[in-house]
Design a protein around this nucleic acid. Structure first.
Length: 686
RNA sequence: GCCGAGGUAGCUCAGCUGGCUAGAGCAGCCGCCUUGUAAGCGGCAGGUCACGGGUUCGAGUCCCGUCCUCGGCUCCA
């Protein structure tokens, strides 16, 4: 008995025979415009060759969308796993999800993969893709799944975890619980089937997948690395292979070029080439030196933030870099954070050759990993009245954290770094205002430093293991954060359970010039420290009250923000931040006097200018100026000296000749005062 | 901390399976040349081949350890 079903798309509907696939339905609905990899059925992702239910609302998932690429990448991960199991008999496969810009798959193998292995695997993948294997979805019972993957311990574990309901789907590709015919969850298995009907490979997987391996247009394996099973240090370390896959060769090439561009912009490389920063081995991992040029950029960042905090009612303080261990016991850092603190400096007299003196308890000191306790001591230096709140204590505080050896990364993750750190103590009725001001402050900062609007604002709520604050306090604080962000009009998302143990927080991210996102600003409410230090103010009622304590760092870390800017600008800072703003290049030694005159006119306006007095050729000097990424080179020779003009060669933009010196000075001073960003590159020098 | 890949001049790199006194380009220094928009010419100097052991007649090269860097994992109060 032939039945018909009705399907819909965006107001249109079509009648089909029962058992029609998603692809047939989409075609009938004329809902296909381009390269598709899957469908959605009532919002759920659906294989194109899977029959659709009656009454379904369908839509196509296109290959050139993030959703489509994720499916493509997931299918590519399966292809890779198949290749690995062929080339490495006995390899156990764990999980292989799509991730941003690619995918990975984890394997338990005899030995780690080598770069040559990756080439071989990639070649095998290409061969398998040519076999035109289809991805066939099969629903099986728990028992059948356990039976099928009996020799795959990681798959077995996944099945049991799903069964126990303990699996968290964030990371892995655990199958969703399908509504089966009754008893127990149904698992889905995807089989790679060759055209002759034989099964090449199978994986426990939620899907969906592309219809066939020939629908994977472009992929590349990128690297291998160790990774703990289920991300837990106490579990075995598996070997992970990262790869990427795209809807076209062109898109893949563009992505690989972006990776290459990111590599060229690495702040460690630019920092060295432009002589901004130095990471000498003698200093130790995670520690850096700002060379004069980098120090100038940093000084300008610090000047700006100091001036702005002052203008916004913050009070600057200065605090030491070390403090007695007692302080860190009170703060709780030695209980909760000791692993990340440098060891104590024990001032036991015996170590110093002292005689006849007793060891004094509490003589050990610690380098500070955070500024908060010091700022609290500034607040509690006397009794505080409700009338003087909010009190905003501010400092560029350098902290030292003993980050684990594998995580240190240039200036992005350092062991010594400086925070533009402030702690705001305020009343309940002030907290929303204060937090909204922090967010607006961050917004202004990104704008001034050329990073545009925040790309993401994330509010993290109470984690499971919170150690301070009661239900009521957390709920109120979370609401305060939400209200504050809402007031700024910025879109935000919430990360449930991602808050710190001591309070909820807002993290603000920005996107750089090549599209990468960086977490910079953090604004956090702290319930813990005020209790530990018994921080209070006297209210209108004459009683003691506990203030809100808000911790905020807008740059986050000066070093990190510096590195992000360096990479985003590709070393070519906007003029107001450039260490050297102008290079005057005489065309020959005869015109050195005029070059100095030009430089003097600029210096009179505090422009940072250098004269190239070298005896190289003009071409050589121009090249030096360009590779140094100086915003403006001024070429001067006979005609300029006679007319009192300059020839301007900007780093970004068009050359201009015969410009009056005064006119240029005016323009430049204005650009610097306005902190105008650099011109976008029209395919110019990079 | 764990897995992997690395460490040769200030920088970028060469140095094959162990075998002359470890090379090149750029940068630096010295000299020559000197008017127009991305590398003028010549010379000189520069290395404890990360560090420490070991194997060997002989180690930049092979083995072990340490330090450091890079890519991941974990962590990120």
């Amino acid at each position: 008995m032939s039945q018909t079903i009705t399907v819909q798309h965006d107001g249109a509907s079509a009648e089909l025979e029962s058992g029609a696939t998603a692809l047939e339905a989409l075609k009938a609905l004329e809902a296909v415009r381009g390269q598709i990899v899957a469908a959605t059925v009532d919002g759920h992702e659906w294989d194109l060759d899977r029959p659709v239910p009656d009454g379904a609302e369908l839509a196509a998932v296109y290959a050139d969308t993030e959703q489509g690429r994720a499916i493509l990448r997931h299918s590519t991960a399966h292809l890779m796993a198949q290749a690995v199991t062929q080339l490495f008999p006995g390899a156990k496969w764990a999980i292989g999800p799509p991730i941003e810009d690619g995918f990975y798959y984890d394997f338990d193998v005899e030995r780690p993969f080598t770069p040559e292995d990756l080439e071989a695997i990639e070649a095998r993948m290409a061969a398998l893709a040519r076999e035109k294997q289809t991805y066939v979805r099969v629903e099986v019972t728990r028992e059948a799944a356990l039976d099928e993957f009996a020799d795959q311990p990681y798959k077995t574990e996944v099945i049991e975890l799903v069964d126990a309901g303990t699996i968290v789907s964030a990371v892995d590709t655990a199958p969703e619980e399908a509504t089966g015919d009754g008893d127990g969850p149904t698992f889905t298995v995807y089989r790679n089937v060759r055209p002759d009907g034989s099964v090449a490979w199978s994986d426990l997987c939620r899907g969906p997948h592309v219809v066939s391996t020939e629908r994977i247009p472009a992929f590349k394996l990128l690297r291998s690395a160790g990774a703990y099973w289920r991300g837990r240090e106490d579990r075995p370390m598996l070997q992970r292979i990262y790869g990427t896959a795209w809807e076209s060769k062109k898109a893949l090439t563009a992505h690989l070029e972006l990776l290459e561009e990111a590599r060229k912009r690495d702040h460690r490389k630019l920092g060295r080439d432009l002589e901004l920063v130095h990471f000498p081995e003698e200093l130790g991992p995670g520690l850096s030196i700002f060379l004069p040029a980098g120090a100038m950029v940093r000084k300008l960042m610090e000047d700006w933030i100091r001036d702005e905090t002052l203008a916004r009612g913050y009070q600057p303080v200065y605090t030491p870099h070390i403090a007695k261990e007692d302080l860190w016991h009170i703060s709780g850092h030695l209980e909760n954070y000791a692993e990340l603190m440098y060891p104590g400096m024990d001032l036991d007299d015996s170590d110093r050759g002292g005689e006849g003196q007793e060891h004094r308890p509490g003589s050990a000191y610690r380098l500070k990993p955070m500024n908060c306790p010091f700022h609290i001591l500034a607040f509690t230096s006397r009794t505080r009245s409700y009338r003087e709140l909010p009190i905003r204590i501010s400092e560029l505080g350098t902290v030292y954290r003993y980050e684990r050896s594998g995580v240190v990364n240039g200036m992005l993750r350092a062991r010594g770094f400086t925070q533009d750190d402030s702690h705001i103590f305020c009343r309940d009725d002030q907290v929303v205002d204060e937090i909204a001001d922090c967010v607006e402050f961050a917004r202004d900062l990104y704008r001034v430093f050329g990073l545009g609007e925040p790309s993401r604002v994330a509010i993290s709520t109470r984690p499971e293991k919170s150690l301070a604050g009661n239900d009521e306090a957390w709920a109120a604080a979370e609401q305060a954060l939400i209200d504050a962000v809402a007031r700024t009009g910025l879109p935000y998302e919430t990360d449930p359970g991602e808050g710190a143990f001591y309070g909820p927080k807002i993290d603000i991210h920005a996107r750089d010039a090549i599209g990468r996102e960086w977490q910079l600003t953090t604004v956090q409410i702290d319930f813990n420290l005020p209790e530990r230090f018994d921080v209070s103010y006297v209210g209108a009622d004459g009683a003691k009250h506990r203030p809100y304590m808000v911790h905020r760092a807008l740059f986050g870390s000066i070093e990190r923000f510096f590195a992000v800017m360096l990479e985003s600008f590709n070393g070519a800072f906007p003029t107001w931040l450039a260490p050297e703003q102008v290079r005057v290049v005489p065309v020959a030694a005869d015109f050195l006097d005029y070059a100095q005159e030009v430089a003097g006119a600029l210096r009179a306006h505090r422009v940072r200018v250098e004269v190239d007095a070298g005896d190289g050729t003009l071409g050589n000097k121009i090249r030096d100026a360009q590779t140094s990424k100086v915003p403006y080179s001024l070429v001067v020779g006979g005609s300029e000296a006679d007319a009192g003009t300059v020839a301007i060669r900007p780093y970004h933009g068009e050359q201009r000749k015969d410009v009056e010196l005064d006119a240029f000075v005016h323009e430049l001073v204005d650009e610097i005062e306005q902190k105008r960003p650099p011109q976008p590159l029209p395919g110019g020098p990079t």
